[in-house]
C-alpha cells in the first residue's frame, strides 16, 4: 500500500477496504466491529442512556501531550462524563486529506486505541472519507459516544447551580491551549508545557459512587473556564464568584499569558472538569479527586451566590471585576 492517503482510499473500492481492514479494524477490534456491518449491534441496559457527538479539528494534529486521535476520544468521553454517564461505546468518522502520511494515520489510530482502553470504551463503528488535497487540514475526526447514567437519582444539569454551591476545578488551567500555540507555527516560543488532554470518566465515577451530590458538571474546553462559568451562571440564574488566588495555574501558562496579553480563564482545556456541588460535600470530593493523578491539583475556586447570571472574579489585590464570556480565540497583543 502507498504510504500516503489518496482519493482512492475514500472510493469505497478495494483500497478503501484495505485501509479499514488493515488499519482501523486492526486497532479498534472488538466483537461489535468484527463483521464490518453497516451498523453495530450493542447491548443497552434498562438504564437511562446518554448520547453525544463532537468533531475534532486541530492544527497541528500532533502536539505536546497528545494528538487529534487522543483528543477525539477524550472529548467525547468527557462530554458523557459531564452528564454523569459511564461512557461505553464510541463511533468514529474520519475525514482524511489526500496526502496524509499513512504512518501518521497509524500513529493516530494507535493513540485512539490506547486512550479508549484507558477510558474503558469500545469503538464499535466508523466511517472514512477522503477529501482532495488542500481541502482539509490532514485529518478531521468525529466521534459519537453512548453512555449510561451511573446514578439515575443524580440530576446533573447546567440549570442546577444553587446559591451556596461550591465550584471546583480538577486541576491546572490553560495547559492545552498554550501547548498548542507553542507547537503551532507563528508565535515562535518554546516552553515546558503539555496539553492536559485526558479521559476523566474513571476519576469522576469515583465521585458519583461515593455519593457526592454534584449539581452541574462541564468540561471547560473552548471558551475556557470563563465560558463554562458564564453559561452555568446564566442558565441557573445565579452569580458565580471566583478567587484569582485560588486558581491552579502552571507558571508557564501565566508567563505565556502575560507575554501575549491573554486571559488564562479564556484558555481551552481538554482534561479538566468544572464541578458545582453542595458545599457540604466539597471537602470530601476534593479528597477523592486529589487521589487521582489527573485530579491532584483540584481546587475549590469559588461559590455560587444569589444573583442574575454574572460571573465575578476577586483579584489578588482585592478588586472585583466582571469575568466576561470570551468572544473567540484570543490573539497575542501589544497593548
Amino acid at each position: 500500500m502507498e504510504d500516503i492517503i489518496t482519493v482512492a482510499h475514500g472510493s469505497g473500492g478495494k483500497i478503501a477496504r484495505k485501509l479499514i481492514e488493515n488499519y482501523i479494524k486492526k486497532y479498534f477490534l472488538c466483537p461489535e466491529l468484527k463483521t464490518l456491518e453497516d451498523g453495530a449491534i450493542i447491548k443497552i441496559n434498562s438504564k437511562k442512556a446518554v448520547l453525544t457527538t463532537d468533531s475534532f479539528v486541530i492544527t497541528p494534529y500532533f502536539f505536546s501531550g497528545g494528538d487529534i486521535g487522543k483528543l477525539s476520544i477524550c472529548g467525547t468521553v468527557n462530554d458523557l462524563t459531564a452528564m454523569g454517564a459511564e461512557p461505553l461505546y464510541l463511533t468514529c468518522g474520519f475525514i482524511l486529506e489526500e496526502g496524509l502520511k499513512i504512518a501518521n494515520f497509524i500513529k493516530i489510530l494507535k493513540s485512539m486505541k490506547k486512550t479508549a482502553k484507558q477510558a474503558g470504551v469500545k469503538i464499535v463503528a466508523g466511517d472514512t472519507k477522503v477529501v482532495p488535497k488542500s481541502k482539509g487540514d490532514g485529518i478531521y475526526i468525529n466521534t459519537t459516544g453512548y453512555g449510561e447514567l451511573i446514578d439515575e437519582n443524580l440530576k446533573i444539569s447546567v440549570l442546577n447551580a444553587k446559591p451556596g454551591n461550591v465550584v471546583i476545578i480538577t486541576g491546572n488551567i490553560g495547559d492545552h491551549e498554550i501547548a498548542i500555540l507553542k507547537d503551532r507555527e507563528g508565535l515562535k516560543f518554546s516552553a515546558d508545557i503539555k496539553s492536559d488532554c485526558a479521559p476523566l470518566n474513571n476519576m469522576i465515577k469515583k465521585l458519583i459512587k461515593n455519593k457526592i451530590r454534584i449539581n452541574v458538571m462541564r468540561d471547560p474546553t473552548r471558551g475556557g473556564v470563563a465560558g463554562v462559568l458564564n453559561e452555568i451562571a446564566k442558565s441557573s440564574n445565579v452569580d458565580i464568584e471566583i478567587y484569582e488566588e485560588k486558581l491552579p495555574i502552571n507558571k508557564v501558562v501565566i508567563a505565556a499569558s502575560s507575554m501575549m496579553g491573554f486571559e488564562p480563564l479564556f484558555l481551552a482545556n481538554e482534561g479538566k472538569m468544572i464541578i458545582i456541588l453542595e458545599d457540604k460535600d466539597a471537602e470530601k470530593a476534593l479528597k477523592i479527586l486529589r487521589k487521582s493523578n489527573l485530579g491532584k491539583n483540584s481546587a475549590i475556586i469559588g461559590y455560587c451566590k444569589k444573583g442574575n447570571g454574572i460571573v465575578k472574579i476577586k483579584t489578588k489585590t482585592g478588586g472585583m471585576r466582571i469575568l466576561l464570556q470570551p468572544e473567540r480565540e484570543q490573539l497575542p497583543r501589544i497593548c
Partner: peptide
C-alpha cells in the same frame, strides 16, 4: 526567558 517561556 520569560519565566518559563523562551523566545528569540
Amino acid at each position: 526567558d520569560f519565566n518559563g517561556i523562551k523566545r528569540q
